[in-house]
Design a binder for these strands. Structure first.
Lengths: 130, 130
DNA sequence: GCCATTACTTACATTTTTGTGTGTATCATA
DNA sequence: TATGATACACACAAAAATGTAAGTAATGGC
């Protein structure tokens, strides 16, 4: 896991915020670059490491590993190891993560709409008289 | 605004993800350290810079400025400047941001519950036989 | 013995975010 | 003339996140 300095102001502020605010905590554990992609893939079915890697363009082994570890530590996914060679490891959403799916759907909806609105207003700002 | 290097792989991956995934985009624009605190304060009423600063312990002028600018650029808050001395600037949520409130409430609920579950399972892992 | 496969790990570099401290323009008031 | 209030800006430092490249253990098949 990426080591963090537990005495930094940065770290302490993060803890303080996540500790008193449920949304901030929720956002914090979902906010890694590829985390939502991973969760979204696992929403459909349990998958192996290599499977995820193939279905998420541009992600590297390292980032996938890091994010999977953090998601597991944060209770969003669970990991099942099979005693085989070559190794087989399967990832799936936890019960807790499943509860979030409807919320994700709403956020997705909102995200798409808001992004469109934003694009339009940016376009207007760039060429106001067209 | 914090300058970003538009040619970095980091930056391009972010764009690629936010571009095709509504949730990732939504999370991305809400995910700054103090952003949800700010939004949460503004949910109740419009506020001035100094007012926000006083109500958000530990935040610095700089972080408040940066986040307010980013939230404005991302269409979550709007800024009103009054021609007075000393200056008066008021911030409020946009229509778009207001639509998110019910989603925030659900995430908040989930966050509190999940954090409790997490704490319990971590406690169990540390002292399994108590 | 050599290679392939899988799920990682490690060391290091780059980019981004966050934090610290100080400075600025404006005008009213003391 | 000096001070205070407001909403920032600027330069710099520290920490955290992300990216790049290479390596590892285990074992079955050739």
């Amino acid at each position: 896991m990426a080591k963090r300095k537990e005495t930094s102001t940065n770290h302490m502020n993060r803890e303080y915020i996540n500790d008193e605010c449920g949304i901030a905590y929720a956002i914090d554990i979902m906010a890694g670059r590829w985390k939502l992609k991973i969760l979204y893939k696992l929403e459909k079915k349990t998958m192996r490491f290599r499977e995820l890697k193939e279905r998420i363009p541009n992600i590297t082994d390292r980032m996938l590993t890091l994010h999977l570890q953090e998601l597991e530590a944060d209770g969003l996914i669970s990991r099942t190891v099979y005693a085989e060679v070559p190794p087989r490891v399967e990832y799936q959403l936890t019960e807790s993560a499943l509860l979030l799916i409807p919320v994700w759907d709403q956020m997705n909806e909102w995200g798409h709409q808001h992004r469109e609105k934003q694009r339009q207003s940016v376009d207007l700002a760039v060429k106001p008289a067209s």
